[in-house]
Design a protein around this nucleic acid. Structure first.
Length: 304
DNA sequence: AATTACCGCAACCGCAGCTAT
DNA sequence: CATAGCTGCGGTTGCGGTAAT
């Protein structure tokens, strides 16, 4: 926990209203404030934040109390690094819903929208910057789908090598084949003869019958029907049902290397990534060669 | 050892939607 | 119906820690 900071009060007192406002604390919370808030909520429950702030004797806005509770003090908040499963889930759900952080957070128990938002800004957008791609562009989506997500899946699989399901591989297969990336890329992602696996809604997904897609794939996963009651597959939530099959075969990845730079351009070439459709297919070749995906920082900085 | 640059995260802000009056 | 207050959300900021020089 951070050291307490003195309150930042910039206003001079004049009217009663301003006097009251000037007493409001801002900035980092003190241990005493945390205790007050926690105890009050334990006794009276959360909600009605403005009243809560007053009744608890906190010189904070209700808004501030709510934020502090939801993002930091709430007992079920998960601390520590995002797991590969969680990262994978964030990437997928973001491709589906965009910056709907709270909605995404609903599918990651114990994680807050703020945390996910920060993850996206600091990690994901950083990758986009390094590649000189707009992080909300189709290009970046495709890159994430076919190069980043496989890494995460691979990590997940390596974390649970004893499992017998190949759901993760199939998941990636579907992710990639739905993408609007050039066919060479999709083909490199193709994992033949794996059982069908529905990425996020194993009961509601109907990829082949994706009526929701009316135009070309603006968002590749638009074809995946994720309802609000989506049941997140175990491979994305932490319970281990992972496949034996690594993705090395289809991605030609050195399994000892989790960084994006481990995906050599030679290996990409070997699966036909650079050949064919020059205008569409070579952008990664051109741009990534100067801006190697540095995924190691993602793993290592946040690894426990 | 000191300084600088960068990064991650907690907290704030403004806005929109909802609800009670 | 209008309006004020509350809540929740997404975007942004700034502090503190740490790596790099």
């Amino acid at each position: 926990m951070r050291a307490a900071m003195p309150p930042i009060n910039t206003k001079n007192m004049s009217t009663p209203l301003e006097e009251e406002e000037s007493e409001l604390r801002r900035g980092p919370w003190t241990l005493e404030e945390d205790t007050l808030l926690t105890h009050y909520i334990a006794r009276h429950g959360e909600g009605r934040w403005n009243m809560l702030a007053k009744c608890a004797g906190l010189k904070r806005t209700g808004k501030s109390c709510r934020l502090r509770w939801l993002n930091y003090l709430k007992p079920d908040i998960k601390r520590g690094n995002l797991t590969p499963q969680e990262q994978l889930l964030i990437l997928e759900l973001h491709s589906k819903w965009g910056n709907r952080w709270s909605k995404i957070a609903q599918h990651l128990p114990g994680r807050t929208d703020n945390e996910i938002k920060n993850y996206w800004r600091t990690r994901v957008q950083k990758q986009a910057r390094q590649l000189n791609i707009e992080s909300n562009s189709q290009r970046f989506l495709d890159a994430v789908r076919c190069f980043w997500m496989p890494r995460l899946v691979q990590k997940v699989e390596q974390a649970s090598p004893s499992s017998s399901s190949s759901s993760s591989s199939s998941y990636l297969k579907e992710m990639c084949t739905q993408s609007s990336v050039p066919s060479q890329v999709s083909s490199c992602c193709t994992v033949p003869s794996f059982p069908t696996f529905s990425p996020l809604a194993n009961k509601t997904t109907d990829i082949s019958n994706s009526s929701s897609v009316t135009t070309q794939n603006i968002c590749p996963t638009d074809s995946i029907n994720i309802s609000d009651q989506t049941e997140i597959p175990q491979h994305l939530t932490g319970s281990n049902v992972y496949g034996h099959t690594t993705l090395d075969q289809c991605y030609n990845i050195d399994s000892n290397d989790y960084g994006m730079e481990g995906i050599s351009f030679a290996s990409m070439s070997a699966v036909g990534f650079y050949e064919g459709t020059p205008s569409e297919g070579n952008w990664m070749c051109n741009e990534m060669s100067d801006n190697l995906w540095n995924m190691d920082d993602i793993w290592q900085l946040r690894s426990i």
